[in-house]
Write a protein that binds this DNA or RNA. Structure first.
Lengths: 344, 344
DNA sequence: CTGAAAGCGCTTACAG
DNA sequence: CTGAAAGCGCTTACAG
């Protein structure tokens, strides 16, 4: 059917082994290499990767299993992973689980069948919990979402710290009744909720939080639930889809931002700076997350027995109009204008 | 190393051929099948896809080569393609060229090396032009962007018609000096520019257009260029990144929309409805594009000699505040409020 | 229905 | 440096 290494060998007047060496790293004389290359051009030969992988027992591929390719956070990380993989001479097999543990399981099986060298994975909570009992057959680096402690290399944002910083800032701006809406499918949502809870407690404030599916519609419902016992002065959320949902719901309710409701969340997506007022967000270092994950994976492949590493990256708060100072209270003092961003 | 079909055969007390048949579609007695399945579970066997592909000469995979995975248009199409492929029992190999013809060429070669059954491709202009002389070795369905006429199945928006409709609508709203900013890397940008030019001519208006790279920054520069000879009353653009750039530039220049400048573009991204005023856009049927492309590819695989098909899909205009009526002119008549959307 | 054997297209010790 | 041969893990005619 298609041309094989034999056809090239015949055309070049050499053995198949020589063709293989000329195309790979084997030792070949310059003269023969030139003959082979010419024959490759003449025949239009393209190596068959399935055969190469089967024989060499190396896939030259890593897997990247993400929860939602429509989320710019993951798109950004994927770009960085792909760039780093390319530089390392590896290909990336990208899969999108859509936050569905069943699809996730299917893709993990697929990765195994493809014999990928390693895996970069942003697991759903369900999968993250199962990872301890049924670990994948290849090295795994977790990103964005925590797994069972101490078992896998991971690259995470300081999630609790970031949402605590958001609470601290809102409190400094004069807000007190601060509610939180968090994604229920990821460990990230859980960690951010914990940071929120801890910071609220530290300030002596009562927490009011809800967990929902990370979807725009779910956030609109969550908004209503959070307003059940009187409207909060501010809301924070763990995910940009939820942030969009809250904004829509607030507008639908005719609320002015931030006068009636302050808003803050995660991920500095373009739209958060385009709406008016702009929305205060924690910007995650997408590029660094992707590259760091790839670096950890490469080291793990090189040294399987090295101790497990957990890399915590810091975000940056982008301060915008959605969290401008709350209306003055009796006890509040005068404030200087806030900085427009700070590192956590 | 990892368990193979031989290990399963030994554990089940059958031949490797029987294992293969039990796992595939071959005829096997129920008793043996059960034994095999049990042995598979016991051994934790996972088939080696490289071996399977090599032997069966079927990759069970199609390639999807896109220009920009960060663009929600392509993300949406990719989801639809993947869903349709899954239903057809095929996998999808997704590659992102970033509008770079060199990367595109590398990925097309890779697709060949992976022996994918077929390809769904959104080509850059450079690649689209070369497709006639150097056609890929497998069936190709073009999406979003035109290729050499009559050579490949394709699924396209009626690009010229859509941008003409935008011009018509702006004219009906009372705008006259309408400028256009178009992406220069894709045939789509060219077609949309043509539709713009034709519609302007039909209305007896002078066109003013620029081609730029499909990037936010390039659009900001393009904005300045279009304002060189006096500011237009309205601008249309062929791409959502360019639309974002125009909006930023307009705001940076302190322009009110639509009073100082009306704005319209393509792709109904969430942010276009979140900014105020909302931006008028042509919404493309992402799901239909992806599914139609997959359908064409499947038919092509079934009937290689069938005549080439070109499917033109229609978009839907989403009318928002960014194109509200222009300030009345002497000759303009009274208008009824516009509908909020219409099909092209 | 079942098994023994051949072979997909490569790479890689093994000789020379 | 070069070639002949073996073999990666499967599937699939070919017999039975």
């Amino acid at each position: 059917m298609t041309t094989s290494i034999k056809d090239v060998a015949r055309a070049a007047g050499v053995s198949p082994a020589t063709v293989s060496r000329a195309l790979g790293k084997g030792p070949v004389s310059e003269a023969l290499r030139a003959q082979v290359l010419e024959a490759v051009r003449a025949t239009g030969y393209r190596p068959n990767l399935a055969a190469r992988r089967l024989r060499s027992q190396e896939s030259g591929t890593i897997g990247l299993v993400l929860a939602d390719i429509g989320n710019p956070f993951f798109t950004g990380v994927a770009r960085a992973v792909e760039a780093a993989a390319y530089e390392a001479g590896l290909r990336v097999l990208l899969c999108n689980t859509d936050e569905d543990p069943a699809r996730e399981a299917a893709y993990l099986a697929l990765m195994q069948e493809e014999r990928v060298a390693g895996l970069i994975l942003a697991p759903t909570r369900a999968t993250a919990e199962g990872l301890a009992e049924a670990p994948p057959a290849m090295p795994v680096v977790l990103i964005d979402r925590p797994g069972p402690p101490g078992l896998f290399d991971s690259v995470l944002l300081d999630n609790a710290g970031a949402s605590a910083a958001l609470v601290d800032y809102l409190v400094a701006q004069g807000y007190r009744r601060i509610a939180g809406l968090f994604g229920q499918t990821s460990g990230t949502g859980v960690e951010r909720a914990e940071g929120y809870r801890a910071a609220m407690a530290r300030h002596g404030l009562a927490p009011a939080l809800r967990f929902v599916l990370p979807q725009v519609e779910a956030a609109e419902a969550g908004f209503a639930a959070l307003c059940q016992q009187g409207r909060p002065e501010a809301m924070i959320t763990s995910n940009s889809l939820l942030l969009m949902g809250l904004l829509r719901a607030a507008r639908g309710a005719g609320l002015r931002i931030p006068a009636d409701l302050a808003l803050a969340g995660f991920d500095n997506e373009p739209w958060t700076g385009l709406v008016e007022p702009g929305i205060t967000v924690i910007e995650q270092p997408l590029e660094a997350i992707g590259r760091q994950a790839m670096a950890l994976l490469l080291e793990r492949l090189r040294t399987p027995s090295a101790p497990v590493r957990k890399v915590m990256l810091s975000g940056r708060a982008i301060l915008r109009g959605s969290t401008a100072s709350a209306p003055p209270r009796p006890q509040s003092s005068t404030k200087t204008p806030p900085p427009s961003s700070f590192t956590l």
